[in-house]
Amino acid sequence: MKKNSEIKRREFITRSSSALLGSMLYSSLPGVLQAADKSKVVLVRKADLHSDNGEPRPEAVNEMIDEAVTALVDASDADQFWTGLIKPEDIVGIKTNVVWYLPTPETVNDALLDRVKKTGVKTENIALDDRGVRGNPVFQKATKLINVRPLRTHHWSGVGSLIKNYIMFSDHPPDYHPDSCADLGKLWHLPQVKDKTCLNLLIMFRPLFHGVGPHHYNPKYTWAYNGLLAGFDPVAVDSIGVEILRAKRQDYFGENRPINPPPKHIAYADSRYHLGNASLDRVDLVTSGWNEGRLI
C-alpha cells in the first residue's frame, strides 16, 4: 500500500500538463522511487542578495526562490512548479519561524504567500504562522504545508532545523527535549502534519553557526552566506545545511569543533522516523549562483 504522500506526489505528476516534465519530476522526488534513491537538494546563492542596509532585497529573494524550485524539478519555469505542486482546492499552511533575532525574513514570507496565491488557492485557505499553528483554522484543515525557516545552531537540539520547525505542532514541546531533542522526527507523524509537507526551504541568508547567551544569538557568529536550500526531503536539506555550518565552524575556530549538542535528531529523522536521507552520499546536491565561500 502506498503512503499518502506518495499518492499525492504521483497525483502531482500525473496531472502535470507535460508528460516529459512529469517524468523528470518523478525522478526528482525522494521517497517516491526505491528507498535507495538519492534526495535532490538545490542550493542557490546570490552575491548581491543584501542591500546596503543589510536587508535581503525582495527582487533577489524572488529570483532565488524561483531558481531553486525550478531546479528542484527541472521545470521550465517556477510557475510550472507551483501549479504542479498546489491545486486551487488545496488549503495551504506556510510554517514560518518567528524566533527572536533570526526569524524567517518577511521578504521570504511575502514571496511564498504571493506564489501560493497565484496557484488559485482562495485567500481564506492560505495562512502563514508559527507559534499559533495548532489553533490556526487553516493549519487545522491544511492539505499542504510549506516548511520554511533560517538555519541556526541551537542550545539543546544542536541546530534549529527544518525537522525542528514543526515543534509548534506539539501540544507540549518539552516532551521532545530528552536526549537533546533526539526524537524531533516524531513530530512529522502528528496528524496535523503527516504527509502534508510539499516543500522545504532552509534559509541560509545569514546563518548562525555558534550561539552564546540565553537567546543563543550574536551577530558575531552569523555571516552573509547568501544562500537558499530547497528540497522535498527535509532530512537531506537539513543535512546539507549542517554540513555548511560545520565547514564554517572549522573555518572560524581553526579546528573541527563539533556542533554541540550533536544535532542527532537529523540522523534519527532518517533511521528512526524514515523521513528522508541524512547521509550525504544519498543526497544529490545541485548548486547554482555565487560560488565564493560555498563551503560545500
Partner: peptide
C-alpha cells in the same frame, strides 16, 4: 522556564 526560552531552558 520553557515558556521563555523553550529548548534553551535545558542548558540552564
Amino acid at each position: 522556564l520553557y515558556d521563555y526560552i523553550d529548548g534553551g531552558a535545558e542548558l540552564y
